[in-house]
Simulated scan of single mutants.
Amino acid sequence: MIDDDARCPCGTGETYGACCGRFHGGRPAPTAELLMRSRFSAFAAGDEAYLLATWHPSTRPASVELDPGVRWYRLDVHGGTGGGPFENEGRVEFSAHWRGAAGARGRQREDSRFVREDGRWLYVDGVPD
């Protein structure tokens, strides 16, 4: 778990409690980008339940098992289309950076699709770069 006063892993510069922590606590993200950022923070915090809860049922796996040896430490948002508070579809392109055991490093670059259903944004899928 991340302390509410710690800097949010998603890179906005806000505290976790004022940023992604509010979404992890149950408040719906108002935009696709904020949902994507909160999902990155869930990876960083090891919050598998939040990842499943924000995954669209049509593509959601039965379970998510995060590797405790991988630390997600930086998120770069490259852009997006749609996904605003009055839209129902959106895309967000980002790079998520990680560190692993024995000094391994990497990044996952993805163009992710999101839909809003019943007032809540959900992750549908992503195309890796």
Rank of each mutant, 00 (worst) to 15 (best):
R99G: 06
H78D: 09
P68G: 12
R99D: 06
E93N: 02
G80D: 04
G83R: 07
A62T: 00
T54S: 05
A96C: 03
S63Y: 03
H78E: 11
V115R: 08
E93R: 11
Y73H: 12
A102Y: 09
E93M: 03
T81S: 11
V92Y: 13
P68S: 11
T81I: 02
T59S: 14
L66W: 01
P61W: 01
P68R: 09
H97L: 12
R74S: 11
G69C: 05
V64N: 01
P85D: 15
R116K: 11
A101I: 09
G82P: 01
D118T: 10
R107G: 08
A104N: 05
A62W: 00
D111Y: 10
T81D: 09
V77L: 15
E117K: 14
G84T: 14
D118R: 14
S112H: 08
R113A: 15
V70K: 10
R120C: 11
G100M: 02
D76M: 13
H56I: 04
G80S: 04
H56N: 06
H56L: 07
R107E: 11
E65V: 15
H97E: 11
E89M: 08
R113G: 10
Q108A: 15
E89Q: 09
Y73E: 10
A101N: 09
G82C: 07
R74P: 02
H78L: 13
R109E: 14
R109C: 14
R109G: 13
A101L: 11
G103M: 01
A104H: 07
R71S: 15
W98Q: 05
F86M: 13
V115K: 03
F114G: 09
V115D: 07
R91F: 10
R120V: 11
L66G: 01
H97Q: 08
P57V: 04
D118W: 10
A102R: 09
E87D: 14
E65A: 15
E110D: 05
F94E: 05
V77N: 12
D118H: 13
Y73L: 04
E110S: 05
E110C: 03
G106A: 09
G69R: 05
R105D: 00
R105K: 01
G69V: 01
P85G: 15
E117G: 15
E89G: 06
A62P: 00
G106Y: 09
E110V: 01
Q108M: 15
R109P: 04
E87C: 06
R60V: 02
E89P: 01
S95Y: 12
G119Q: 11
R113F: 12
S63G: 01
A62F: 00
R116D: 10
G90L: 04
V115Y: 05
W98H: 11
Y73W: 10
V77W: 11
W72V: 00
V115C: 08
R116S: 10
Y73D: 12
S63P: 00
V77R: 08
G79A: 13
E87L: 06
E93G: 08
P57Q: 03
L75N: 02
E89K: 06
T54Y: 02
R105C: 01
S58N: 02
R116W: 07
V115S: 05
A102K: 07
P85Y: 13
R109S: 14
R74G: 08
W72E: 00
R99P: 00
E65L: 15
R113H: 13
F86H: 13
V115N: 04
N88Y: 14
V92P: 07
A104I: 02
W72A: 01
